[in-house]
Design a protein around this nucleic acid. Structure first.
Length: 477
RNA sequence: GCCUCAGUAGCUCAGCUGGUUAGAGCGGCGGACUGUUAAUCCGUAGGUCGUAGGUUCGAGCCCUACCUGAGGCGCCA
């Protein structure tokens, strides 16, 4: 028996005249004659033509929406419009029939919220199969970009005993009996009896460990799961997400920005180059979604147009202080339209970031040199003693996609900052060692993978770009 | 964690100022159909109006609490 062929391959090679076998799920069965078959290998369906007189009624009856079938036959030039080739069915095997009266999906538009509840089936829809193919492509492109640029992929720990970074609330990892944990004599929980003989958590960032790598391997990156136990209820936050964190020795803040910008553009170019079919499906979906929306709520550009625009143009680069000045002389500020005040020393609010990105520059904006008091202890202090060498990249629609900095390499300055910000020195002694012994200038950033997938797919809720989203109160599947 | 909005058939929604028997489209089911592209046509079944209380002669509609979802904010990536 011939091995079956991926539909994507059949459609690319178009070897008409050949006998082939394909396997997949029925997307539609029209006029008792035409099956739109999809096996997930690509965005496009293969049209299978059935002469029903040649088949049992029972088989014809089982060819229904999302039933799984195998088809053997000859590939021919399509006799109809809409596709180049089609498969003339000579034999059809029902691999898995479908009970339509109980099946939660329907061949019609269904809301993202409803499909989210059907996470075990939603990948069978056009939208989600495209999203997850793009997610795969982008993950692959992450590795390919760094590999091409001389970076080493580093696996930082998922369970960590280090809780000093302060990036967010953490999930505790323990094998102690939560109902009656071991206690010390003064009735505190006795972590010396826990699995790792200390309190441990799921990682909130691999950055500090990546710095260890950079101080030996030069250019490293991590790409792995990250966990935040924040009670964040937004369309841009997950409790479990994937983060990419490059760390580069001998690099200053400008090198860091150049890297981040080149990286993001590489990812976008990668899918523009290789996954246009999926982008077209999502582009069309967005246009369809926006058809009934008021003009001012629609996106100014289509998805593919937006992606091209981002890669063709330089990102805007401004300092935090310049951003404050721009905001204070902006129309919405003068008219009192902002809900929050704009004041040097206070972090930019979402509405301020949105004005900068969507109104002022109309493209991604890199904001640098934030006040030291609103940023982390490890960011390098600038000459002015007030700001640090930090940078955030803000994207239209989703806000902060990248957060990074040049790291403080001066031992005395770093220690002073840790004291100032109440960071335990003892726990991070190894981190200080990196400065004590052969330290160097270095920089890095963190990029939320789902946020960039969100931007590139044009989806609007981060829960729809990860197969099984974890959010407060929800860990289904 | 805070604010706002929503929950009516399997799905997407309509349901007037509180008033008789709860409406549509799609989907399902039964049938027709051999060039369709979200196929089309005919027929048909399907509802504890999120849950629990309350107000009222009378509640899908008003009030209270809770649950679930969405949007926004904060925290961040």
């Amino acid at each position: 028996m011939a091995k079956h062929t991926d539909i994507a391959t059949v459609l690319v090679e178009q070897k008409t005249g050949e006998q082939i076998e394909v396997k997949g799920w029925v997307r539609a069965f029209r006029a008792n004659r035409f099956i739109a078959l999809n096996d997930g290998s690509g965005a496009n369906n293969l049209q299978v033509v059935v002469d029903y007189e040649n088949f049992d009624d029972a088989i014809i009856k089982d060819i229904s929406f999302h039933a799984c079938i195998a088809v053997k036959g000859q590939l021919i030039e399509s006799q109809g419009k809409g596709q180049a080739v089609e498969l003339v069915a000579e034999s059809i095997e029902i691999l898995g029939a479908n009970e339509l009266d109980k099946y939660p999906l329907q061949p019609k538009r269904q809301t993202m919220e409803y499909l989210r509840e059907q996470a075990h089936f939603r990948m069978r829809t056009n939208t989600f199969s495209s999203v997850f193919r793009l997610r795969h492509a982008l993950a692959f492109a992450v590795h390919s970009f760094f590999n091409e640029n001389g970076f080493y992929y580093m696996h930082t720990p998922i369970i960590t005993g280090s809780d000093a970074e302060g990036a967010g609330e953490m999930f505790q990892v323990t094998t102690l009996d939560v109902n009656k944990p071991a206690r010390t004599e003064d009735n505190k929980i006795d972590y010396s009896q826990d699995f790792f003989a200390k309190a441990t958590n799921l990682t909130v960032s691999g950055q500090l460990q990546a710095e260890i790598g950079a101080m030996a391997m030069g250019k490293v990156y991590t790409f792995g799961p990250t966990f935040r136990a924040e009670n964040s209820n937004t369309s841009r936050h997950l409790a479990e997400f994937w983060m990419i964190e490059p760390e580069v020795a001998f690099a200053d803040l400008k090198d860091n920005m150049d890297l981040a910008e080149a990286f993001v553009k590489y990812l976008i170019n990668y899918v523009l180059d290789k996954y246009m079919d999926d982008l077209k499906i999502l582009d069309a979906k967005i246009q369809d979604d926006e058809k009934n929306m008021k003009a001012e709520l629609r996106r100014p550009m289509g998805l593919i147009e937006t992606l091209r625009f981002v890669v063709e143009d330089d990102f805007a680069r401004i300092t935090y202080s310049e951003a404050i000045n721009l905001l204070r002389s902006s129309k919405p500020y003068k008219k009192g339209k902002f809900e929050y005040d704009v004041e040097w020393g206070v972090d930019l609010q979402a509405e301020h970031e949105r004005w900068l990105v969507e109104k002022k520059f109309k493209k991604p904006v890199i904001v640098t040199d934030y006040p030291k008091d609103i940023k982390a202890f490890y960011m390098r202090m600038n000459e002015d003693g007030k700001t640090v060498a930090a940078m955030d990249i803000l994207f239209p629609g989703i806000g902060e996609v990248v957060g990074g900095s040049q790291r403080e390499e001066r031992l005395d300055v770093l220690k002073a900052r840790m004291t100032e910000m109440d960071v335990e020195h003892d726990e991070l002694d190894w981190y200080l060692d990196l400065r004590r012994f052969g330290g160097n200038k270095h920089s890095g950033f963190g990029l939320g993978f789902e946020r960039i997938v969100l931007f590139i797919t044009g989806m609007t809720n981060i829960r729809d770009v990860i197969a099984f989203p974890r959010t407060p109160g929800n860990a289904e599947f």
